[in-house]
């Protein structure tokens, strides 16, 4: 059965691009443009993704981090892998060294990806987080 992925990003262009890349690879993708709404949808059980991909900076600079916390506190999603979209340098400039083990523990995101995202990189990371071997994709 196809995996479900929830995209959380306030930029409609990025969600559109990432959605298309993922759908071409056979995923079922849903999109929410606000981190709080996304957290609520996950808590209410409206969204039951196998993987969550979120941006770091949305309504606020650290919306992505706050969202991750809520996701982890929610029993339904405590174990759902998260792919966070941010640059190492960008996060550092906001005061987070996302490479440090402490930060990883605190942020609770499982992997990071930096925009602009290349299709191959995105798919490789997603498959890795889902514990699957990277498939040779069926799009050209």
């Amino acid at each position: 059965m196809a995996h479900k992925i929830l995209l959380v990003d306030d930029d409609p262009d990025f969600t559109a691009i990432h959605k298309e890349i993922l759908e071409k690879d056979g995923f079922i993708v849903s999109v929410i443009h606000n981190s709080v709404e996304a957290a609520e949808a996950l808590e209410s059980g409206k969204e039951t993704p196998d993987l969550i991909m979120t941006d770091l900076m949305m309504e606020k600079d650290d919306s992505g981090f706050k969202f991750c916390h809520r996701v982890r506190r929610n029993a339904k999603t405590a174990k759902t892998p998260i792919l966070m979209c941010t640059g190492v340098a960008r996060a550092r400039s906001l005061g987070f060294d996302i490479k440090s083990p402490e930060a990883r523990e605190w942020i609770k995101a499982d992997d990071f990806i930096e925009k602009p995202i290349r299709a191959e990189t995105l798919l490789a990371k997603v498959h890795h987080l889902l514990g699957e071997p990277a498939t040779t994709t069926n799009h050209h």
């Binding site: 930029d11 262009d13 990025f14 691009i17 298309e20 925009k115 299709a119 799009h139 050209h140």
Partner: peptide, 18 residues
């Protein structure tokens, strides 16, 4: 500039791939 340019590049990538 970063986000718009990334979006343009992303769309172009999708168009070329399809």
């Amino acid at each position: 500039l970063k986000a718009p340019v990334a979006a343009i590049e992303g769309y172009l990538e999708l168009i070329i791939g399809d």
